[in-house]
Design a protein around this nucleic acid. Structure first.
Lengths: 359, 359
DNA sequence: TCCCGAAGTTCGATTTAAATG
DNA sequence: GCATTTAAATCGAACTTCGGG
């Protein structure tokens, strides 16, 4: 049988009523265990329940929450689903939503502003009960504020902060993370460290650099300006890999000696390692490399990557907690201020870093 | 301002009507550019349009498509969103859906049967117009057939075929892919090839092996049974990486000489490379390794991985095409048979394979 | 007193038939 | 009779009220 019957066969409350020989009202009362169901005899209840089961009846959520103005759906926007960073956050979001019996509508913005706007409209038009945005780039701004705030839809951003406004945020503590990385390299004896900083556009970049400088100051480590380069601003998803590659070439060209590279993120670190490999420089024997994020490939590559882990599932989780609280607050007519949470990163030591050889 | 107004502010047609001083009907007519709008003077139109803009009015999809029994939403189920294989397919699905102004509800089954069932219920209860399932494991079976077919919801599976039933499928041509891989290794002079086959449970495994044997026969290549091992059946997402690692150890223990390894998929290949590296065997100098899938890390690792690319975005695209056709067919009360499409794979030559050294 | 069911309500956008000037 | 506008019915499905038996 590969044919499809033409008549729609969605099972409705009425069907269950017909099947069990009672009225829709009775079915509703029994199935929802409403107060009135006290008066309904067990035999009838049983009959109804079996009929519902037999027909695989599920109340449609749109109808059910018609008057409650709810639909147990939240909109999720990611900047690039192809980016493993997004993937792990998504896992955290999905998991938390599942616990709460919510479903996510997923939209992938492809790092394009136009796409972001169109998707935002589509999500608001559903409408969704709340919005979670995983965004590192900054094109998410006035629009989010204007439209979302006007409609009072709880919103939270992961990975970026939007001070001023009703939009909450959840982020990793970038400064602490950079501190962790520096501490690790320093404890391995590295003193000549090259840095590939993030693009200036990126909100993560400056706190990480702050963390680096703070640590350097605290141990009297000198940072050679010639060994500091910035990833270019770019919307190309592969840009940090390419950037790591090219900027490492720069370092090598200048003939400045360094024993370790601190990359802005894991993708950059992969680019760095690739470039060093080409130049015949072995990681970690000749040079240590540390990343940031702990994206899935980090543990798989050869050598596996030492990195600072963002608690990505926890980020997703926290975001869901925030918006669900806000949704409940709105229902109970309570106020709910925008929240801004910082989550602690964690150092993951693998193979790409090693103590400097004094030979 | 971090406070949230208490009154719900969903803007409705009525609000626009109030704002512009006309009736809801007029607003609807103007905003939809309905035939009747011919008679409405530009001044009124303008007033309405400005009011709509000012209030950021968006017609709710559920209301709009109430009579049409549609909601422009499809359910997407993936077995593990953390798997880069899923990620690229998702990109294809998302893209095609976007073109058609549909939105996906994403569910991640975590390779767990119970989760699959619960999610299936939730999606059917929405309801969604159609269902796309990215599944390699086989727990998707009778249930999908029973419930989905009962409700006449168009469904398509990516990566697995469910002959018998109304469920369509889209897959890569595994046999052709294996053939491609073998041809490549053979042309590089490899004759002693070790094989790590997929888990028996997996639908992909047997056609790939068929492709291997067909090619071997065609060039009179002998396959040493001692150099053929199977990945264990497992639901652990990391299992193929671990499997590649362990099975390669087996090969090395047996002291059988081989110059190339054909891994079931890229993750397995990463495990293989890791194991070889530990044993001091260089890839590709001492041994070539080829994968299957072309997941994102494949191009990033050192050495980058030669592999057989599944056209994953195209898979997602094709799936969307199929279910959208089916949805339209249902609306027009046409029949629509289940479709089964095979897409061609592509060889991607990178660094992990090299001609055998005859030295 | 206890149980049931017909009829009406809910959401918001569209559509129709009719009412204005 | 014509150009504009609108009140009211409709859609789907679950839920709720109220009165009858």
């Amino acid at each position: 049988m590969t044919r499809r019957k033409l008549k729609s066969t969605a099972v409705t409350l009425r069907d269950v009523a017909l099947e069990s020989g009672v009225s829709p009202a009775t079915v509703s009362i029994v199935l929802n265990n409403a107060p009135l169901s006290r008066y309904i005899p067990p035999t009838t209840k049983d009959r109804i329940e079996r009929a519902a089961k037999k027909l695989a009846y599920r109340p449609k959520v749109v109808s059910r929450f018609l008057s409650a103005k709810r639909n147990r759906t939240v909109g999720v926007m990611v900047f690039d689903i192809t980016d493993p960073y997004c993937t792990l956050i998504l896992r955290g979001i999905e998991n938390a939503l599942y616990q709460a019996s919510y479903l996510p509508i997923l939209t992938d913005v492809h790092n394009q502003r136009g796409r972001f706007e169109r998707y935002l409209e589509m999500l608001l038009a559903r409408p969704v009960e709340a919005l979670i945005v995983v965004a590192n780039w900054l094109f998410v701004d006035i629009d989010l504020l204007a439209d979302v705030e006007k409609r009072n839809i709880p919103a939270v951003m992961i990975g970026r902060e939007l001070r001023s406004g009703a939009v909450s945020s959840v982020m990793v503590d970038n400064e602490a993370g950079a501190h962790l990385a520096m501490e690790h390299l320093h404890s391995l004896g590295h003193r000549k460290i090259a840095f590939i900083r993030g693009p200036k556009m990126l909100g993560d970049s400056s706190p990480r650099w702050r963390g680096v400088r703070a640590f350097a100051r605290s141990v009297n480590l000198e940072i050679d300006p010639a060994l500091v380069l910035d990833l270019p601003d770019s919307f190309d998803p592969n840009s940090s890999y390419e950037g790591g590659l090219k900027l490492t070439e720069e370092f090598l060209k200048h003939k400045k000696r360094f024993t370790a590279v601190m990359a802005f993120d894991d993708m950059t670190a992969f680019g760095v390692i690739r470039c060093l490999a080409r130049a015949g420089i072995k990681v970690p024997e000749d040079c240590s490399v540390i990343g940031f994020d702990d994206v899935i490939p980090a543990g798989l590559s050869v050598p596996s990557l030492t990195t600072v882990r963002q608690p990505m599932e926890a980020l997703g989780n926290a975001a869901v907690g925030i918006i669900l609280d806000a949704v409940n607050a709105a229902i109970e007519e309570r106020e709910s201020p925008a929240l801004h949470r910082l989550l602690a990163p964690e150092l993951v030591v693998r193979e790409s870093t090693r103590a400097v050889s004094w030979a």
